[in-house]
Design a protein around this nucleic acid. Structure first.
Lengths: 106, 106
DNA sequence: ACCATGCGATACCAAAAGGTATCTAGTCAA
DNA sequence: TTGACTAGATACCTTTTGGTATCGCATGGT
């Protein structure tokens, strides 16, 4: 009963992992293919993939000697659910802020 | 130009900080008031509040000798924006998965 | 003026996270 | 079966993170 939202939020907290997610929205990819997009070793990418899998955000399905990593949208549900708890709150204030934010580029 | 989404995602990655957010949706609170809800020292809570402020999720406004922490919904925008990039993707597959997930409690 | 109180800042510690190097094990082609 | 390629596992290192303990600084009541 380890809070599944926790594992998902943790998985999303790293920029490399979010980039992996972005890449996987384009197509399923092997570790080697993903590693080509980063300046780090295959082992490091593997660790990120493990965290993503623990967070339920990807699934692996072996194909011959390759193991393709595929995005699993169901893993995002806990995150969306949590954020949804505050829909009312965010909406109320976001609406009021929108015009303000747009005209103050900071 | 430090990616603001990164700071926000990092702030959301800790369960204590998410609980703080939840508490702050009810009412603005001082550090002391927040600390009463956790089994940790005021200094630890203070650190979490710093991370939340860096993530743009809360703002502090002094009131006498108290400093009330207030939720800032604008800080969540980068997160919602990032998630929004995959709306199409999630939606497509979430719809297909919904019934499946509901009948497979795993 | 005093003293409680509410916070901020710092130094310090243990554990977790991100990374590399290296070794081992399957799978496919010749 | 040998060799090349793809990936998992482990040991190890460094940095970050979450936490405590402690000190000092304002603020407000008496």
């Amino acid at each position: 009963m380890t809070d599944s939202a926790q594992l998902a939020f943790r998985a999303l907290a790293d920029p490399t992992r979010r980039e992996i997610i972005r890449l996987l929205t384009q197509q399923d990819m092997s570790i080697a293919a993903l590693t080509a997009h980063f300046d780090m070793t295959r082992a490091a990418v593997k660790k990120h993939l493990t965290v993503l899998r623990e967070g339920g955000l990807i699934v692996v399905h072996p194909q011959g000697r390759e193991r393709l990593n595929r995005l699993d949208p169901a893993g995002l549900e806990p995150v969306l659910d949590w954020l949804g708890l505050f829909d009312q709150f965010w909406d109320d204030r976001l609406d009021r802020l929108k015009s303000v934010v747009e005209r103050s580029p900071e």
